[in-house]
């Protein structure tokens, strides 16, 4: 199944297919390791529901829902 990162529920993980959006934001996402093929795990959401905390390339990254919407992933089914 394919969906954007902001649509993920906690505990789900996926593999990045594409990154879209404003150039500056896109570049920042690339620099932080969100490139095609990278695995992302949605760890939690902040108490007010936004931003999100994900694990990518074995570190913790926080990003807002609007920024997460730029990242499209293929969901990895939970084993």
């Amino acid at each position: 199944m394919i969906k954007t990162l902001d649509k993920f529920s906690i505990g789900e993980s996926g593999r990045v297919i594409s990154v879209s959006g404003e150039r500056k934001i896109k570049r920042r996402l690339y620099d932080m390791g969100i490139t095609n093929g990278a695995e992302i795990y949605l760890r939690k959401k902040a108490p007010l529901g936004d931003p999100l905390e994900v694990t990518v390339r074995s570190y913790e990254l926080s990003l807002r829902g609007t920024e997460a919407a730029c990242v499209t992933l293929e969901v990895i089914p939970n084993a």
């Binding site: 934001i25 996402l29 913790e60 990003l63």
Partner: peptide, 9 residues
Amino acid sequence: PPFIMELPA
């Protein structure tokens, strides 16, 4: 400003 930020250990 964007909030794409590392949460360091």
